[in-house]
Design a protein around this nucleic acid. Structure first.
Lengths: 113, 113
DNA sequence: ATGATGTGCAACCGTATGGTTGCGCCTGAT
DNA sequence: ATCAGGCGCAACCATACGGTTGCACATCAT
């Protein structure tokens, strides 16, 4: 009941990153391509390269992608770990809610004694 | 490969709702209390009741909570379903990334022939 | 009846955020 | 040597968002 705090920071960044539709689109494109550069990605989206660069920075900070330089370009690829961890966090939270709701219901339905 | 679109709308609202720390705090308090009103929740947070009301509206729209009137007050409670669905969506996405990455790696490592 | 308590609505405010444009700097190709 | 393609930085802009305050309306208790 105290594994909170530290983990929440990481989860927070992932949630914020995933909350934007353009960023999710970017992740889809990246997952589909395997690897791509900001310039390439911008061509497939209705926003400027600079906008893409900013989004990639957010995604990178959240650990959802990682980029490496190849010559004059920077190629980004998707990283499942952070997303998976957040999915687990969320599933655990939902399970906790379920547990609590079941408890309340049990108490409510129990006879007075 | 086409179960996207419809589900994403719902997921989007949940992600946006969960991306805010105050809203997550609110959900924690609600889960802990079982039931609570905007006024009660505001007392436990460093923000005004009105701010809480707005947050509750967002959470309600996302299906994460539901409120019912009891006399002059409106009591809210947590709803695990939407959160659970989003957790599953996210886990599936992470798994998809994993699959794709494994595929790329396989191709890359395969001999030319 | 009347006062306290709680909700609902609206206007308003500052800042974070998603977006743009412009420009300078590497790096690779000719 | 030079030129094109791609990256990085900075300034700037509009709007959405989290938050506040003020007030009117409903409801319960006295």
């Amino acid at each position: 009941m105290s594994e909170r705090g530290g983990a929440e920071d990481a989860v927070d960044e992932v949630l914020v990153a995933m909350a934007d539709p353009t960023r999710r689109r970017l992740l889809d494109l990246l997952a589909a391509s395997g690897e791509a550069t900001a310039t390439t990605l911008a061509e497939q989206l209705p926003v400027s390269r600079q906008a893409v660069v900013k989004h990639l920075a957010v995604l990178d900070a959240a650990g959802l992608i990682q980029g490496g330089r190849v010559g004059r370009e920077v190629r980004y690829a998707v990283r499942p770990a952070a997303l998976d961890a957040t999915a687990r966090w969320m599933a655990a939270l939902a399970a906790d809610w379920d547990r609590r709701l079941a408890n309340i219901k049990r108490i409510a339905e129990a006879p007075e004694r």
